[in-house]
Design a protein around this nucleic acid. Sequence first.
RNA 1: GCGCCCGUAGCUCAGCUGGAUAGAGUACCGCCCUCCGAAGGCGGUGGUCACAGGUUCGACUCCUGUCGGGCGCGCCA
Length: 461
Amino acid sequence: MHVGHGRGAAYGAAVADLLAAVGYKVHREYYVNDAGRQMDILAASVWLRYLDLCGENENDELPFPVNGYKGDYVWDIAATLHREDGDAYRHAAAIVLSNLPKDESEGGDSGGDKEQYIDAVISRAKELLGDIAYRKVFDTGLNSILEDIRRDLEGFGVVYEEWFSERQLTENGAVGRAIERLKDSSHLYEKDGAWWFRSTDFGDEKDRVVVRDNGQTTYFASDIAYHMQKLERGFDRVIDVWGADHHGYVPRVKAALTALGDDASKLDVLLVQFAILYRGGERAQMSTRSGEFVTLRELREEVGDDAARFFYVMRKCEQHMDFDMDLAKSQSSDNPVYYIQYAHARVCSVLRQLDEKSIEHDSNNGLAHLAVLTESHEQSLLTRLSRYPEVVESAALNHEPHQLAHFLRDLANDFHTYYNAHQFLVDDVALRDARLCLIRATRQVIANGLGLLGVSAPESM
RNA sequence: GCGCCCGUAGCUCAGCUGGAUAGAGUACCGCCCUCCGAAGGCGGUGGUCACAGGUUCGACUCCUGUCGGGCGCGCCA
């Protein structure tokens, strides 16, 4: 999983948890793009690497497509396939390559077209392998990648109730049904052999193709079917989290929902801007092309899950963000995550002192004497704590977890200030019990708040 | 060319659906532990809220335009 998806994952998870915290029944769903050409390209790439492992490339007679997926994970998948099924999918290199069009060269123009070439390789794979074997290669690749993503996100504290398959939408007829409904309501028309959705009727800048002239439905058709079905499943509100580079698709998806007679205002699309990673004051390489892109896993390993989750939601989602990896992993006061976690750990440390000094905390006595908390630092801490519910509600309803992040920072500041100004473990029992109630409440709110952002609250650091 | 997002202190960002002298962190300078963790606290320096108009009793906030940065504008996914 590319690090570019990290912000959307952290943001979506925080919004979902916030909404759940204020009482919404939340269903978290990951939309799996398992239909379409990119998965076929993966399958073809895996197959070619597999043939290599079978020994079909001993004399470099089996070139790898310019447009194929070159990552190491493709080799891993091919190896799994070879380990499990041996030479079952093996075909001679000469047969695989016979009569294929020219591939584009790495440099650029050699007369070949890389798109046409990879498509030809895919067709050849389907033709030689047959449906069942092709499906096996395809699914081995897909499942491997999905499993990887699932593990990665789970480790990141981002979990879903459902992994929704795009392919399923075609197979269970939802895509066809959506298209029929649009045809019946005459929102589709045929032109140049393709079927177009008249999205301009709903304010989009141009009409969009849903069925290509070759009979294949487009990605947009799946989108329509997905959202149609989502509302059919009985959800009153749908929140999509998209990368901001897809912003142009919002009008057409909403247009389609309106055309279907659904209420498009039930759909909120949250666009998450890119986060630019900085390391050592320089932009970290993130391009996919080089094959050397930073993965979410690498980021997690480098800065830690807590810092990554917190940094990703520290800013408004529509704000372009600079992610300073050096700051995120620094264990110093510069780092807001440590600052907040430290406040939590400090309270825990004070509570540990109770045991060491054999002091009992009578919380009922403390609650009965809250009126003695008259110091200005105590007042501001109390006031801050009392705002927590409204901050959570506002952060949830506005889909702005950064509000909570900022609140926690301020709360930690109030606490640290208080800590420096006053002793908690005083001889006056009523005052001591009341103060311990206050800092326990502080600890609880910090733990709850960090929890909503997917960040841990350690008892010591 | 058109569309979306952004432009607030040297740097990274808040500013709660317009309200009083614009706030944090960081950086820089100076203080504070015989005391529950100094991974902390306190004070100071620092801004023409990109620019120009407009609406308003009042604009960082709303509208228009300009400039600058990012991202999109396929019968790709």
